[in-house]
Amino acid sequence: MTIYTLANVTKVYKNKTVLNIRSLKIKKGYIYALIGPNGAGKSTLLNILGFLELPSSGTIYYRSSPVIFSQKKICPLRKEIVVVNQHPIFFSTTVYKNIELGLKIRKFSKKKRDKIIEESLDLVGMRHMVKAMAQKLSGGETQRIAIARAVALSPNVILCDEPTSSVDSENQIIIANLLKQINEQKKTTLIFTSHNRFQTAFLAHQTFFINNGEITFASYENLFAAKVILKGQEFSKCIIENTLNLTIIAHKVGCIRLLIDPEKIYICEFKEEKFANNSLYARVVQISEEKEKVRIMVFFRINITVIVSADKYKATNPLIGDMIRIYIPPEAIKILS
């Protein structure tokens, strides 16, 4: 079942379009990751999905009904969704009172409130902090209590803005496991933003890459500043990060930002001559498994991410430190601006 459908949703701040989503569907009970550079529009999208911000145009369907952003109609919908901020805000009172707030608004009895608060704090392993002042907590504790506060309200959707960006590695693992557990046990739809590819690979059923407010085809990792230096009839020459010359399809000379789709980069045999242009001899610096694919980070003046199928990886079997030959087809390079 689809819980959200976004159609031509835009958000404009001071004449600048910060979000432009043509189409997006979110299924109930799944975990989704939004990945993209700072200022890409991830948080704006989360706020719109949490009904905290109005889109400038377009339609949002929540549980198949179009959302009307009037005070009267939006308040009941907000009670089904909780946004957990990157730096969660707590009111200047105890952990108990902070969690109790949303339950009080929902008019739960005192007995039921106490039971829910205990359960949700148990879930995040923070029951001993029930009487602590919420604003005195550490980064990891704050994030876990914020998740407990969200879970206590039994929402349909939890939207987490970079839930592990401001916590230590120990808490990063705890929080990631916690989110997975919440999704599995309570079937809560989770949407989170992140910069961490490993975390998204571990947590998310599906990852959306967002850049300049738009959902893009590839990871923002291969996002570079470049300069088109020579324009040909079909292909042009560009120099990436002042260091790497590539052939691309460009229509004019000048400074650009471009994305290289990591799934469209080939690993080729050393002797293959047909890929003379745009082929590089690069050193493997990182390898990781991602669902049924393998991510290989190679270094040739700059770090470039290559994603290959597990079969392709087994066939070529590059190891860390090995020199491999990669080919970047001009079609794999998308000019952003």
């Binding site: 706020n47 905290l52 308040c75 805000i89 707590f90 009111f91 707030l101 949303g102 608004i105």
Partner: peptide
């Protein structure tokens, strides 16, 4: 902080 307002709203406050 403006985020207090958003926090209250996301917790369901009118």
């Amino acid at each position: 902080d403006k985020r207090y307002r958003k926090t209250a709203m996301t917790l369901g406050a009118n």
